[in-house]
C-alpha cells in the first residue's frame, strides 16, 4: 500500500502553513475552521499551489522536494482532487467531461453507468442536479487513475438528503479505492463517519493527529475539543478549580500533577442530582438563563448560582430530552471520568 507523506511549510498572507502527516490505506481527515489552512494543504499536495519548502511524496514517487528542486507539475502527479464546487467543464456534456480525461469512450460509458449518471450522458453540467454534478466530478477523478484522492469539503453545496446519499457513495467508492484519501472538512460528524484518522488544523498548523475514537473521547488541545463540538469548556487552576464554571472539580492527585490548563464536558453527559449534593465537588447549583428548543432535544443554558465570572464559557449547556422541564433542574453533576482534560 502506498503512503502519502506530507511535510510542508508555506507563508500564506497572515499565517504560516505548517503541515506534516503521513497516511496510507486509512482515510485521513483534516478538520479545522474555515481559513485554517486545510484547503491550502490539499492544493499543495495536488500541485496547484507551491509550498515554500518541504517534501511531498506518494510511496517512492517524490512530487515535491524543495531541497532537490523537484516540483512535479499538477498534471503528472496523479492526485485526484474533488473540488468543493465540482469544477466541471461547463462547455462539455457529461460524456465529454469524462472522455476528455480518459480518452476511452467505452470506459467513459462504463463510468457513466457506474456512477448512475448515464441518463445525463448528453447534458451539460448546468442542466444537471447537484448530486449528479457531484457524481460526475467523482467519475472524472476516477477516470484520471489517481493514486491519492483529495476531497475538499465535498458536501458543502448539497442539501441534507443528497449529503447523506452522496456521502454513502463516496464511502463505497473509497473502500474500493486502493490508495490513501484525504478529506477536508469543518463538520465533525462527517469526519467521524467517514475517516479513521483525524488531524486538526488551527491557524495554519497541523497541531494534533489522532485516530478518531481517541480524538473524540480524549482531544488533546482546546482547539481540538472545540472542533469535536464540546460546548462546555473552562479554564482550570492548579488546584482543580474551574475558573469559568465557578465550581471545584474532583480531580485525582495524579491528574492535578499533570498541570492541565482546560477542562471540557459534553453537554449531554450531565446527571441530575438531588439537593443533598449541594456544594459538593463536581456539582452545579443551576441558575437557568434560557432554554433553546432544538428538533429532538432541548438545550438548557445555565450558570453556577452566584458565579460572577461573566465570560462566554461561564454559561454552560445541558442537552436533555424534550420532556425535561427546566424548572425541575436544580442541581447537575459531572461524571469526572468523562471530563476532557486539556494541556493547551
Amino acid at each position: 500500500m502506498k503512503t502519502l507523506k506530507v511535510d510542508i511549510r508555506k507563508k500564506c498572507g497572515s499565517f504560516q502553513l505548517v503541515s506534516k502527516f503521513e497516511t496510507s490505506a486509512d482515510r485521513f481527515a483534516l478538520l479545522g475552521a474555515s481559513g485554517s489552512g486545510k484547503s491550502m494543504t490539499l492544493k499543495c499536495i495536488a500541485g496547484i499551489e507551491k509550498p515554500d519548502e518541504g517534501f511531498i511524496a506518494i510511496g517512492d514517487r517524490v512530487l515535491f522536494d524543495s531541497k532537490r528542486h523537484i516540483n512535479v507539475p499538477a498534471r503528472k502527479r496523479r492526485v485526484g482532487y474533488l473540488f468543493q464546487n465540482y469544477a466541471l467543464f461547463p462547455n462539455m456534456t457529461a460524456f465529454a467531461n469524462i472522455n476528455m480525461i480518459c480518452r476511452d469512450p467505452s470506459r467513459t460509458e462504463s463510468l457513466l453507468n457506474m456512477f448512475d449518471i448515464h441518463n445525463c450522458r448528453d447534458l451539460r453540467p448546468s442542466k444537471m442536479s447537484g448530486g449528479q454534478c457531484q457524481r460526475l466530478a467523482l467519475a472524472r477523478v476516477i477516470a484520471s487513475d489517481p493514486e491519492v484522492i483529495l476531497l475538499d469539503e465535498p458536501f458543502s453545496a448539497l442539501d441534507n438528503y443528497m449529503h447523506t446519499i452522496i456521502e454513502r457513495e463516496i464511502m463505497d467508492l473509497l473502500s474500493g479505492f486502493d490508495g490513501p484519501s484525504v478529506l477536508v472538512s469543518h463538520d465533525r460528524n462527517e469526519v467521524f463517519r467517514m475517516c479513521d484518522t483525524i488531524g486538526v488544523m488551527d491557524n495554519g498548523s497541523l497541531i494534533d493527529i489522532q485516530d478518531k475514537e481517541g480524538f473524540f473521547d480524549h482531544p488533546a488541545t482546546l482547539v481540538a475539543a472545540r472542533l469535536t463540538g464540546c460546548k462546555n469548556i473552562t479554564r482550570l487552576t492548579e488546584d482543580g478549580f474551574a475558573t469559568d464554571w465557578g465550581i471545584k472539580l474532583g480531580l485525582s492527585p495524579s491528574d492535578l500533577k499533570e498541570g492541565y490548563k482546560y477542562a471540557g464536558y459534553r453537554a449531554h453527559f450531565f446527571e441530575v442530582a438531588g439537593e443533598e449534593q449541594k456544594g459538593k465537588e463536581n456539582v452545579f447549583e443551576v441558575q437557568v438563563e434560557r432554554v433553546i428548543e432544538d428538533t429532538f432535544s432541548n438545550a438548557i443554558c445555565f450558570r453556577q448560582k452566584g458565579n460572577d465570572v461573566k465570560s462566554q464559557d461561564s454559561l454552560l449547556t445541558y442537552i436533555t430530552g424534550k420532556d425535561t422541564d427546566a424548572d425541575d433542574v436544580k442541581f447537575l453533576k459531572i461524571d469526572p471520568s468523562r471530563l476532557m482534560l486539556l494541556r493547551r
Binding site: A46, A74, R75, N85, F89, P90, N91, I101, A143, S144
Partner: peptide
C-alpha cells in the same frame, strides 16, 4: 474563466495547450 476549472483540468492530467483550446477558449 474559473481558475478552479483550470486547476481541476490540470490535476486530471490535461496539458496546458489542451486546456487552452478545449476549455478556456470555449468558456
Amino acid at each position: 474563466v474559473d481558475t478552479e476549472v483550470i486547476n481541476a483540468a490540470r490535476t486530471l492530467g490535461l496539458g496546458e495547450f489542451l486546456i487552452l483550446t478545449k476549455i478556456m477558449i470555449p468558456m
